[in-house]
């Protein structure tokens, strides 16, 4: 019964959602499209980090700017979006995961969503791999794959000027890399930036976790002799990069914390690939 109430509240809230106009950021919701009797080409699934975490919100805005720039016909769910259930599932709470999944699938199917793009590898993995069996079958792409396609097709162009001569190292998010074998799309974006990519020893299939996955993000680490993000950031800093790029809001948090703890925030920036591309495209 509690469940039912919760769901009711979600449907009610759609009525209040309005198209939000800002000087340079215009984002429509699925409800907006539906009200006009239209359907967008792609749903931008923002994710909890992208919606609530101050650092990750910048990534969300960067990607929205790219989508606006190329005139993509896209929408977000806005207040109708809810956690995919990924952290609950990895923590062993399958009930909570499946309840979240079922509710999200009802919303997504209700809007007839066919394609989803997300900037969060955890949402990406769950939506792409775990939702189909529960009735949610969509084409799901990570934002690095989406941007790669925009660049390859010439819909978006970037100048490497801002990053010329800057050394970038790329941290593979586990849920993008090992979990889903997406290694090349992020790297192809870095290539387009006309910059030097220096690979850490532990990269691609051997990439070291940032320490956030499996619901670790939401708890203190078990006792050990080191934090995982420190182990990772030490390896990244050995490459003496000016930018550590990644494609996951949680990796971003862990690595940013690591850089701070090593007192290197001034010369080393942790950036999402969407932010780098947005910057290079003067957005």
């Amino acid at each position: 019964m509690v469940l039912h109430g919760h769901f009711q509240q979600q449907t009610d809230s759609t009525g209040q959602q309005k198209k939000i106009n800002m000087a340079n950021l215009q984002v429509s919701t699925m409800a907006d499209y539906m009200a006009n009797g239209e359907k967008p080409d792609v749903l931008f699934w923002v994710g909890c980090a992208g919606s609530f975490d101050d650092r990750a919100k910048k990534i969300t805005r960067a990607f929205a700017k790219i989508l606006n720039k190329v005139g993509a016909k896209y929408a977000v769910l806005g207040q109708e979006e809810s956690c995919t259930g990924d952290p609950a599932k990895r923590a062993g709470n399958e009930f909570l995961f499946q309840m979240q999944a079922m509710m999200n699938i009802q919303v997504l199917n209700g809007y007839g969503v066919q394609k989803i793009v997300t900037a969060c590898p955890h949402c990406f993995n769950t939506l792409k791999n775990e939702y189909p069996e529960l009735g949610g079958k969509y084409e799901v792409v990570h934002h690095t794959q989406f941007i790669q396609e925009l660049l390859d097709s010439g819909k978006l162009s970037v100048q490497g000027g801002d990053f010329k001569g800057k050394k970038i190292t790329y941290h593979d998010p586990c849920y993008l890399g090992r979990a889903n074998d997406v290694y090349d799309a992020p790297r192809s974006l870095i290539e387009k930036l006309d910059t030097e990519l220096s690979e850490m020893k532990r990269s691609r299939k051997k990439g070291l976790c940032c320490g956030a996955g499996g619901a670790q993000m939401f708890k203190e680490a078990e006792s050990g002799d080191k934090e995982i993000n420190i182990e990772r950031i030490e390896e990244a800093l050995e490459m003496s990069p000016s930018i550590i790029a990644t494609g996951c809001p949680f990796c971003n948090t862990m690595l940013t914390d690591g850089v701070k703890l090593k007192n290197r925030s001034r010369e080393v920036k942790v950036m999402d690939l969407a932010e780098l591309v947005a910057k290079a495209a003067d957005l």
Binding site: C48, S51, Q79
Partner: peptide, 22 residues
């Protein structure tokens, strides 16, 4: 975290109404 996901639809205690503030 479970409680937050259940009540707010996010692993943190932010209200669902703030989801689109970004």
């Amino acid at each position: 975290m479970f409680g937050n996901v259940e009540n707010n639809g996010a692993p943190w205690a932010f209200p669902a109404a703030d989801r689109f503030n970004w």
